[in-house]
Simulated scan of single mutants.
Amino acid sequence: MSAPNVTKSNLNFTELPFNVSDSNMSVTESLLYDDEAQEFDNEEKTWMFGAPLLLVFGTISNILIIIVLMRKKFRKSSWGLYLTTLAVCDTLLLYMFSLDSWLQIVFKVWISDETVAGCKVYRFVSYFLVHFVAWILVAVSCERIVFIYFPMKAKIVCRRRTACIVLGSIAFILTGVNAHIFWTFSLTEYDGFYYCDLVDNIAELMGPQFVIIFLWLDLSIASLVPFILMITCNITIIARLIQSDRQRRAATSDGAQKSSTTSIAIMLVSTATMFLILTLPVAICMVLSLNDEFTSTGNNMDNLYFAKRIAEFVQQINSVLNFWLYCLTGKAFRTELKAMLCCGRFSRTPGVSNAYVTRSTSATTQVEHKPKDVKTNGQDNTVKKAQDDTKL
């Protein structure tokens, strides 16, 4: 999510069209220039040294997420498909924003400013991915509601095929919403240079209020609506988990026992919560940019620009942290990762497909899983299954 005007990012404070030492410049103007130059330098250093770290750790983390979720334990689950798609989108976002910002600062190369076609495609993909990531997390949160409140229906509704339909529908709608970019964005001349921005005749082409409508639409799709939905779902899920935990403690003497549904729900709620925290600064900057009173002075505009650039860097951190959140809060994910890294020598827990999760949810209230004592060639089924698992 970014404002359409990017010409500010191309401003080079070492090439301003006036001499800082000019005797006509007042002391106040000199101090303002020094402050602005210092802010620019800090923002530049943040991206110069931070972007490579984000790219390296983000790429490795997301590749590990994809590998783990594509293994037999998770590949049939709907939430596994959602998180795999999320990891792919996060990786693409890292390269589109972090790599692009780093190339601008270090090599003075602007990927989106080379050709008209490149400008249109870059803008479309960037807006699409930002919107898509937010709504993937909304879909995951809604699915958890179904799993926790309607466990028997979840066995039928929350399948991998359903997840494919949901993802496809979201992608189709977002493609339609952002399709206007192909004719509203192009290379625009500014002070002898060409930048990827809204076309000059945008008011004649789309109407005088298009820019405001565009900014509010982007803000609503990427932040406001997903924020409201995810916060509502997360509060509902947490309340249900607390209630289920109390019932479990009252029904069993071992209060430490937790269902797979609870473990997965905690992992997904943590992911959505971290997304909300790390993307909130960008949303605040976008809201302030729509306030005419706040942006009426040039000093506020400059401060807002630099704040937004730092907020965008913080937003990129979200694409790196998901792997560590899964390891920290997801027992099933953590166990499968250990098994993969140990080449199958690590003893793993039973699978957590959607059907298993549904049965586990029901077990917290009335069904108890009973071990089977069936012998197969001198070994029970549990031992045989463990031996088969080590071959994965």
Rank of each mutant, 00 (worst) to 15 (best):
M1Q: 03
M1Y: 06
M1W: 08
K8D: 11
E15N: 15
V20F: 14
S21N: 10
T28H: 13
L31M: 10
L32R: 11
K45W: 08
T46R: 08
L53R: 11
L54H: 07
T59C: 05
S61L: 02
T84Y: 09
L86F: 10
D90E: 10
D90W: 12
D90Y: 10
T91W: 04
L94D: 00
Y95W: 15
Y95G: 06
F97V: 13
Q104G: 12
F107N: 05
W110V: 07
I111D: 02
G118V: 05
A134I: 04
A139M: 04
V140T: 14
C142N: 07
R144T: 13
K153D: 12
A154I: 00
R160I: 10
C164E: 13
V166S: 10
S169C: 14
A179T: 06
I181T: 09
I181P: 01
F182M: 07
T184E: 15
S186N: 15
T188R: 15
F193Y: 07
Y195T: 15
E204M: 10
M206C: 08
G207N: 05
L217N: 08
M230R: 06
I235L: 14
I237Y: 01
I242F: 03
S244C: 06
S244N: 13
R246E: 14
T252K: 12
T252W: 02
T261N: 14
T261I: 08
I264S: 05
V282C: 11
M286W: 04
M286E: 10
L288Y: 09
D292S: 10
E293I: 06
T297A: 12
N299Q: 15
R309G: 06
A311M: 05
E312S: 15
S319P: 00
C327D: 00
L328V: 08
L337A: 02
M340C: 04
L341A: 05
S353F: 05
T358Q: 02
Q379P: 00
A386I: 02
